[in-house]
Nucleic acid binder design. Structure first.
Lengths: 139, 139
DNA sequence: CGGTATCCCACTCGATACTG
DNA sequence: CAGTATCGAGTGGGATACCG
C-alpha cells in the first residue's frame, strides 16, 4: 500500500465534508463517525467498561477481524476510544470509551427513542408505499 | 430493470437490520434512513416548508437529479416526506416534511450540538493520532 | 418541469491467509 | 492474543442522456 501521504497505514475514512448547510454539515460529520455497521455496537460494548480485542470480536457478533480493527482505529482516531497496550506476553490490549463517547451515546439514545416512538408509523408508511405501486394482478 | 418483485421500480434500500443488540439495532435503523450524503440536507430544506423538485435541486448544492430522486423516494417511503403532485401543465410537485420528520430533526440537532461541543477535541485527537504514526523524516 | 435509464468508478466490507 | 495483507463482491453515488 505505497501511498505518498504517509500518515496512516490502515484505511482511514477520508472526511467527505464540504457541505454548504452548517447544520447538515455538522450532523453529517457525526454520522460519518458512527455510521457503518459496526461502530455503534463497538462503542456500546466499550461503554460498559474496558474491552479486549477478542472480547469485542465475540461480543459484536458477525464482525470480522479486519472490520473490527478498522472500526477500532477510526474510533480511536476520533478520540472516542482509548487504546491501552500492556506489553505482556501474550499481548493484551484494552479499548475504553472516552467521556466524549459516553456523551455521544446519550444523544444516540434520543435517536433510538425517536425510532421507538415512530416504529409502527414508519412500518405503515413503508407498506403503504410498497403496495401503492401495485403489482399488475393480470400477471 | 426487469425484476419479478414488481413493487418499486427505483432502487430502494433493503433494510440490513438483523443486529443482536436492541439499542445498536434501533439506532442503526434510524441511521440507515438518514445516512447517505443527501437525506439530511433534503430533510432540512423541506422542514422549512414545501419545496419543489427543482428548488431542492438548487438548494441542495452538488446533488444530481438521480440522487435527488432516489433520496426523495426513500424518504417518502419511510413517511418522512409527503409528495404532492399538482396535475397542471407544466407539472408541479411539492415535497413536505411530515411531523415525524420534524421530530427527528430535533434529535439530529442534539447530535449536532454534541459535535459542536467536541469539535476541537475531535480535531485534536485526529491530529495527535495522525502525527503519532510519524512519517519517516529521512524520505 | 420532473423525472428515468445506463454506465461506471470508488469505496465498503467479507473471506481468507499470514505474522509478531 | 492482536493484529496485517490481499483479493473480490456488492453498493453508493456521479455523469450523462433521454422521456411524458
Amino acid at each position: 500500500m505505497s501511498q505518498r501521504n504517509s500518515a496512516v497505514t490502515v484505511e482511514v475514512k477520508a472526511a467527505p465534508s464540504g457541505e454548504h448547510d452548517p447544520v447538515a454539515c455538522t450532523v453529517l460529520q457525526v454520522l460519518d463517525r458512527v455510521s457503518g455497521k459496526w461502530a455503534i455496537g463497538i462503542l456500546l460494548e466499550c461503554a460498559h467498561g474496558p474491552r479486549r480485542f477478542t472480547e469485542l470480536e465475540r461480543a459484536v457478533k458477525g464482525i470480522s477481524r479486519r472490520m473490527l480493527t478498522l472500526t477500532l482505529r477510526n474510533l480511536e482516531r476520533d478520540g472516542l476510544l482509548t487504546r491501552t497496550v500492556y506489553p505482556t506476553v501474550p499481548p493484551k490490549v484494552e479499548y475504553t470509551a472516552t467521556p466524549m463517547a459516553l456523551e455521544l451515546y446519550e444523544s444516540l439514545v434520543s435517536l433510538a427513542s425517536w425510532a421507538e416512538r415512530h416504529r409502527s408509523e414508519i412500518a405503515d408508511a413503508r407498506s403503504a408505499y410498497d403496495h401503492s405501486s401495485a403489482p399488475d394482478p393480470t400477471l
